[in-house]
């Protein structure tokens, strides 16, 4: 097996074992209802994590994701509820705003040579601050289009429901996988993460690719914000605080190397599902504090970073090159 596949395989195995163990304890966890809710409840996280996967494979990080989700939710709610804009037009507007926002961050990262960590940290404060300036309160959305979408679902045997937003997440994952693994853009993303100097010498359009990567991440974060507003039927400026960190965890647990260059979009899907499993288990248990979720995620994350370290250190070809004369 290719070494880059090993962390992903490990995640998949852990997911299956953990799920099997959960089912042994709570047999009702093996139902289409629980599986359907897995997708619905994690839809916004999953969509944001797809964008984060591209950013991390390229060797960067995007800390603005959670704030963009919050900002998008507020903007959509305000456009629909206060200004009477049709939801579809509101979606187009917020996706456009997010694209510009991401492009600006990407341009700053490339042209000003500022680390992505700093640029997106600034982006995080901007977006979160902007959302809070628009309104401090939760803005409810009561639009027939919203209730129509919420009612859109495929009923599964056994009482399960595949919601629109759950299916949207799956579709985004499939499109993301296609983009990452089957297009030139995807190969440029991996090239940047592998060695930016080589990438430049090999003719990769580094500036354009960097801008596109952060545009993609912000647009998907905005889509995630839309999904979140559909999920909660409201926009709240403090929504989705820290979701960027959950997304990063899902990406890393899904087998993407935090230093860039290696990773799979579908691995992130398994990562998101594993996080969802932990939450669901804690809900089923009922006695555990929901903060245990954080502890389990922390342990998993640490384990995976160690695992990747071992896999990539052990199979590095040859030894270090001697110092240059």
């Amino acid at each position: 097996m290719k070494r880059s596949l090993r962390p992903l395989a490990a995640t998949a195995v852990i997911f299956i074992i953990a799920y099997a163990a959960s089912v042994l304890q709570f047999p009702s966890m093996l139902s289409t209802r629980v599986l359907g809710n897995f997708l619905t409840d994690n839809a916004f996280l999953g969509i944001a994590a797809v964008g984060m996967t591209f950013v991390i494979i390229s060797g960067g990080i995007d800390l603005s994701v959670g704030a963009v989700i919050g900002f998008t939710g507020v903007l959509v709610a305000v456009l629909i509820s206060w200004l009477g804009v049709h939801p579809l037009l509101a979606f187009v507007i917020v996706l456009g705003v997010a694209a510009l926002f991401g492009a600006a961050m990407g341009a700053a990262i490339h042209y000003l040579k500022v680390p992505s960590f700093i640029v997106t940290l600034a982006g995080m404060f901007l977006a979160r601050g902007g959302a809070s300036v628009i309104t401090q309160d939760s803005v409810p959305i009561n639009h027939e289009f919203y209730s129509a979408i919420s009612d859109l679902m495929i009923r599964l045997p056994g009482g399960g429901r595949l919601s629109f937003i759950g299916l949207l997440m799956v579709a985004i994952f499939l499109l993301g996988a296609l983009l990452a693994h089957r297009t030139r853009f995807g190969s440029y993303v991996y090239a940047l993460g592998g060695n930016p100097v080589s990438a430049l010498l090999m003719g990769v359009p580094v500036a354009r690719t960097t801008v596109q990567i952060y545009m993609l991440s912000s647009v998907l974060a905005a889509l995630s914000g839309i999904v979140f507003s559909l999920y909660t039927s409201a926009g709240y400026p403090l929504a989705a605080v820290g979701v960027e960190l959950d997304a990063i965890s899902a990406v890393v647990i899904g087998g993407t190397l935090l230093t860039g260059g290696y990773g799979f979009v579908l691995g992130t899907f398994v990562g998101v599902m594993l996080l969802g499993l932990v939450q669901t288990y804690i809900i089923f248990d009922g006695t555990l504090s929901s903060w245990w979720t954080k502890i389990v995620i922390g342990v998993l994350l640490f384990l995976f970073i160690v695992l990747q370290r071992i896999i990539f250190a052990a199979s590095a070809p040859g030894e270090e090159k001697p110092e240059k004369a």
């Binding site: 880059s4 991996y190 592998g194 060695n195 100097v197 080589s198 010498l201 090999m202 003719g203 990769v204």
Partner: peptide, 21 residues
């Protein structure tokens, strides 16, 4: 160059054709 300026994380074929796949 002295330092191999290719992408160790990608396949041999992709290194040959990157940008011209």
């Amino acid at each position: 160059y002295q330092e191999v300026n290719l992408l160790p994380n990608r396949s041999v074929a992709e290194n040959l054709f990157l940008g011209h796949q």
